[in-house]
Structures are given as structure tokens and as C-alpha cells.
Simulated scan of single mutants.
Amino acid sequence: MKNFDEIQIPSVRGIQLLLEPIVVKLQNLEIELQKLPKKAQSSKYYRNNDLKQLFGLSNNTIIKYRENGTLPFTRLGDVYLYEVDEINKILKLNEVKL
């Protein structure tokens, strides 16, 4: 028979003693991160194809919604951009609760 070294399982207190310094360091890092200036979150945008794929809208419907003010947009040349947060607001406002 082969001799196997005994495996010792550490006690709960032993594990706590190992983890305490890590927890303290993580808490200190969190405090330091909170002190850093907040970066302005860049807005995310949908394009026409995104609206068609995500919501099943046709080109004509997207144009109609832009023209009648239902769909707020930003235009850069020939590219139309729709802010994700604005689309989410529209969806929330039109939510049907039964």
C-alpha cells in the first residue's frame, strides 16, 4: 500500500484569519474608488437597423415616428441615431399593465 500524506482541513477561524486582510484591502480599495471623480457615462445609441431588428419596425414606420415627434433622434449626415435611454423611456411610458 502507498502512504498518503494526511490532508488537514483548516478550521473556520483559520479561514477567517486568512480572509480578513483581503477583506480589509477590498474595503480600502472601495473607499478610494468612491473618491475618484465620476466619469460621465457616454450615451449609447441605436441606429435604424437596430430598431428594425429589436422592435420589428419598418423603414416607413421609423420615418413616420421621426416626423411626427414620437421618436427623438440625432442626425449626423445621413445617419440617424436614437438614444437608448430615450427609447427605454418611450417603452416605459407605453407599458400596458393588466
Rank of each mutant, 00 (worst) to 15 (best):
D50L: 05
L71K: 05
L26N: 05
E83K: 06
L19G: 00
I15P: 02
N94D: 05
Q8L: 04
K97M: 04
E20G: 00
L18S: 03
N88F: 15
R75W: 02
Y82R: 11
I22F: 06
P21T: 06
M1S: 13
I31F: 01
F4D: 01
G69T: 05
N48F: 14
N49I: 03
R75A: 11
Q16Y: 13
L93Q: 13
L91Q: 08
L57R: 02
N3K: 11
Q27W: 04
E32P: 01
V84T: 12
R66W: 06
R75K: 15
A40F: 01
I90N: 10
K39M: 04
G14P: 01
L57Y: 12
E32D: 08
T70C: 08
K25L: 15
K97C: 03
V79S: 12
F55V: 03
K35C: 00
I9K: 14
R13M: 12
K2H: 10
N68Y: 05
N48C: 09
L76D: 06
E95N: 08
V12Q: 12
I87E: 05
N28P: 00
E95W: 14
Y46P: 10
Q27Y: 04
D50C: 02
Y82H: 07
R13I: 09
Y46I: 01
N94F: 06
L98V: 08
Q34R: 10
Q53P: 04
R13Q: 14
N88Q: 12
Q16V: 08
F55I: 02
Y45K: 04
L81Q: 03
Q41H: 02
D50G: 10
N28A: 06
L33F: 07
F73T: 07
K52T: 09
L71F: 07
S58E: 15
N94H: 15
D5T: 14
N49E: 15
K44M: 03
L33M: 15
G56T: 12
P10N: 15
L76N: 12
N49S: 13
Y45D: 03
F55T: 06
N3D: 10
G56E: 09
M1I: 01
I7M: 02
I31D: 04
L17T: 09
P10Q: 03
L93S: 05
G77D: 09
